[in-house]
Each structure stands twice: as structure tokens, then as C-alpha cells.
Computed example of a mutant assay.
Amino acid sequence: MNSHNISETQFVILCTLSRTGPQKISELAEHLNITLSAVTSLSEKLIGLGYVIRKRSNEDRRIVHLVLTQEGEKFSDILLTQRRTVIRDFHKSLTDKERELLTQIYKKMI
């Protein structure tokens, strides 16, 4: 992700927001298993780049959601497409036996 000037965790934040919609910072922290302050810090750059905005809840002004912007949606789509291409190319380079072994490893991890 460094070629795009965002970290892997920032990439995960973008993908999570793209998949689930607006999220409270506390929900993202729990999902990523990191602290609230870490999510706040990581999201600052995404906000600065125009990929994410903060939006206060209408019901409870203390609650702040992170929301993906249109630009953020486009950017996350580009990154996901690139990642899928890299993974697909990687898998193509494997022999059948290597793919089978990798599948067994994935199954153990899950």
C-alpha cells in the first residue's frame, strides 16, 4: 500500500467502510483489534486525503461515524482490484501441488 501512501491498516479501514458503510470509531477499533486512539490517528490521514469524513450522529452528538467519501469509494475499488490482480497472478504462478498445499494452510488458519 506504500505506493499509494497509505498503510495496510488504513487500507483495511477503507475496505471495511466500503463493505459495511459508516462505522463508529469504537466499532472499527474492535474490528481491527486496535485502540481507539490508533483508529483516530490512522483515520486522520484518510480524512486529509479526502477518502473519509467524520459525521456526528443526529441522535447522539457524542457519537462520531467515519464515512467513506465518493473519492474514498473509488480509491478503495482501485486498491481492491489491484490486490485481486496480484493475488490472481501469484496463484497462476503456483503449481497444482503448491496450490493444494496453500489451500491446506489456509484451512488450518481458518
Rank of each mutant, 00 (worst) to 15 (best):
S18V: 06
D89Y: 10
G72F: 01
L42T: 04
R99C: 03
T9S: 01
Y106E: 10
H91K: 13
P22D: 04
K55E: 12
T35F: 03
G50S: 01
V39A: 03
S57E: 09
L36Q: 12
E98G: 04
T103G: 06
I53F: 00
I25R: 13
Y51Q: 07
T9W: 02
T95C: 04
H4G: 01
S7A: 01
N2S: 14
L68T: 08
N58K: 15
E73K: 15
T69V: 06
R61K: 04
L14I: 03
T40K: 14
D89N: 15
S26A: 12
D77S: 14
T9Q: 11
R19I: 14
T69N: 05
L94H: 02
T40C: 12
G72S: 04
R99I: 04
T35A: 15
E8S: 12
A38F: 09
E73A: 14
I63Q: 01
L49F: 08
L79N: 09
R83H: 07
C15Y: 09
Y51G: 06
S43F: 10
I78R: 14
I105D: 00
T85W: 11
T9Y: 03
L66V: 07
I78Y: 14
R54K: 15
D77K: 15
L102Y: 11
E44N: 12
R19L: 15
P22A: 04
E44F: 12
H65T: 01
S41T: 15
E100P: 00
E8R: 14
T85E: 02
L28P: 01
L94Q: 03
S93E: 09
K107E: 02
L14T: 08
V86D: 05
S76W: 02
V52G: 03
T40S: 11
T103N: 10
D89H: 14
Y106C: 03
D89G: 12
R62S: 00
R88T: 10
I53C: 00
I63V: 00
L66S: 05
E98Y: 01
L14H: 07
K107Y: 02
G48M: 13
Y106N: 03
V86W: 06
D60K: 15
A29G: 14
N5A: 13
G21Q: 05
K45F: 08
I25V: 00
E44G: 00
T103E: 05
P22N: 04
E27G: 13
N33F: 02
T40V: 00
L94A: 05
T35E: 00
I110T: 11
S43P: 11
K107Q: 05
E59D: 11
S18P: 08
N33S: 14
K24T: 09
T20M: 13
L14E: 09
Q104E: 11
L36C: 05
L28G: 07
V86I: 14
K74E: 09
K97I: 13
L79E: 07
G50M: 10
K45D: 11
K45R: 15
K74G: 01
S18R: 11
E98R: 03
C15R: 13
D89V: 06
R84M: 05
I110V: 02
K74Y: 11
G72H: 04
H31D: 03
I34C: 13
Q70R: 15
T95N: 03
E44I: 07
Y106A: 02
T35V: 10
L17E: 05
